[in-house]
Each structure stands twice: as C-alpha cells, then as structure tokens.
Design a protein around this nucleic acid. Structure first.
Ligand code: MN
Ligand code: MN
Ligand code: ZN
Ligand code: ZN
Lengths: 148, 148
DNA sequence: TCCCAATTTGTAATCATTACATATTTACAA
DNA sequence: TTGTAAATATGTAATGATTACAAATTGGGA
C-alpha cells in the first residue's frame, strides 16, 4: 500500500512504458494528491507549471497508467470520473455534503458470494455514500442541537 | 425483493407521484426487464409502442423514480449509466466479455468498516468485473483446451 | 547529425445529458 | 359539461466530458 513514486517508476519501466516528462508529472501528481482527483483537477493544477500541457495528453496518460495497472478508475457518480494511485483493494465513501471521497479498509475476503462461484473476478469496487463526520458535526452546530 | 408492478404503483401513490401513462410504462418496462437497461434501451424499446415518446421524458421519469426510491442508478462504467428496479442491497457483476450485468447476494452486514464508525451511510454499492461462466466456457471451447 | 518512431499538442467531432420553451394532459371548480 | 391553472410531456438547442485525428515535437539509435 502507499506506493512510492520510485516504486511506480520501476513498475512502469518493467512494462516498457517510457517515462516521459508529462507521464512522470502526472504520476507524481497522483502520488501527492490522493484525493481521487478528476481529469480537470489534474490538468488545471499541472498546467500551472507545465504551460504547454494539453488535456488530451492527460487523458492519454491516465489511460496508459490504468492499463498498466498503477492507477484505478473510480466511478461513484455517473457525472464524474476520478483516478486513484492506490490500486490495492479498499472501499470508497463519498460525502454527499462536501463531496470528499474517503478511503476505508474492508475485508474483501468476506465479500465472497456463492452466486459468483463460477465467475472469474478481476475487479472489485465498493462505493458508499452518505455524510462524513465533519459535515455531520457542522449540521449539528448549525441546528444548535446536540445528538441525532 | 422482486417488487411487483402493483406494489410499486402503490409506493408512488403514497409519495404523491402522479401515475401518468408514460411513467407507468417506464415502470412496467423496468419490472419486466431486469437486465439493468440504459436510457437508450428503455427509450428505443418503449418508442416502438409509444410513438410520441421523447427521450427527455424518459430522463425526467427516471430521475423522479430514483428520487422516489423505487429505482437505483448503476455506475459500473463511467461511459454508461444503468437503471435497476431492485433497490434492496445486492451486488453487481459485469462481464467484460459479453457486457451482461449479473445480480449477486452478499451479506452487507459484514461490510462494516471500523474506518466508517462516525459516518452516516445512506447508499452501498458493490461492483465486480470479470468473466461470466458462459463466456468462460466459450473461451475454453474456442481454445479446445480443458481447464485453466 | 540524421531519421524514425513515440509522444504530445490543438482542434474538431461525438455523444450522453441537461436546459428550456412550447404543447398536451390532468385535476378540479363553476 | 366547460374553463382554467398546474402538472406533465415533447422537441430542439445547449452543454460538457471524452475521443478522434492530423500535425508538431521530442528522443534515442545509426
Ligand atoms: Mn482510494
Ligand atoms: Mn441489480
Ligand atoms: Zn462531508
Ligand atoms: Zn459474459
């Protein structure tokens, strides 16, 4: 878990993926910004320091990184695709109030279903939605009421 | 589970949602087609018998049904939104080969994570991907090889 | 240095979804 | 039954994310 930039570079080299400047910067961005950013966030942030960057390049690179297995796609909402540098199994919780996506650990071994006995499973995603503790306490403060 | 058309109509009445002809036909379609159809599938199939139907209407109705809690949105892939008349907790498996989305039962009580102790959870989605038994056997036949 | 292939870039095309104005239907009172 | 306002449906235009594509740039080996 928590793959380092160096480990990821090594993994890409092993898969014969050339480490161009743009690819390294996108990879570095994802390592440093584990908030599950959108393409727009990655592009607009990186463009500040790479003025020639094209959004098409960001799309291309993300596709390559996903195919290489070092990035995973998060589709909690049908209107926004997000990207995660952590590819090991973990759950995602999206707060409906502030929009933050939290990681959480769950025992994926307990997720076995007899119904899938003869299926070959290659990807597992667990998406929850609700209200995060920070927003819950804000709501309580606003209402000036203690408890639920 | 397996909500009947009549039960769903009753549920909508209770929520003061007028049962217009188009709404009933979309509801009926979802009850009869539990393959998790896309808007395009619902629209093009229904248009055969409702020639004046508008795709905007299908979008509007699905939005209302989702808000009323009788339909759930499935976002396994970022490029296609699907709809499910079964809103009780269950998992979804998408076959990467044939595209079929299968339902499967899992014990959602086991899905608790200590990390979410103070979170208010309102929606739980479990999405798996892989190859279904039918496609697995087709692949084996094609290769004329037994076993994996 | 020169050349070829990989990579990046910018623009145009695609396509699902939404916005919005108009048409139709429904509910209900007179 | 008729009139009227609100709800619902329709059709078209606008939006916005993603992809397609051709041209420009880069980088490594001969
Ligand atoms: Mn994550
Ligand atoms: Mn289902
Ligand atoms: Zn929050
Ligand atoms: Zn299949």
């Amino acid at each position: 878990m928590k793959p380092s930039f160096e480990e990821l570079k090594e993994k890409l080299k092993q898969r014969n993926i050339h480490l161009s400047y743009q690819r390294l910067r996108v990879l570095e961005y994802l390592v440093q910004n584990r908030c599950h950013p959108t393409v727009e966030q990655i592009f607009s942030d990186l463009q500040k320091s790479i003025s020639t960057l094209s959004k098409t390049t960001v799309y291309n690179i993300l596709k390559i990184l996903v195919e290489a297995g070092v990035v995973r796609v998060i589709t909690i909402e049908d209107y926004e695709t997000r990207y995660d540098i952590e590819v090991e199994n973990h759950g995602h919780f999206k707060c409906k109030s502030c929009g933050t996506i939290y990681d959480f650990n769950i025992n994926f071994d307990l997720l076995n279903s007899a119904d899938l006995k003869n299926f070959k499973i290659s990807d597992k995603n667990v998406y929850f939605k609700g209200i995060c503790p920070r927003c819950l306490s804000n709501i309580n403060e606003t209402n000036e009421v203690k408890g639920d």
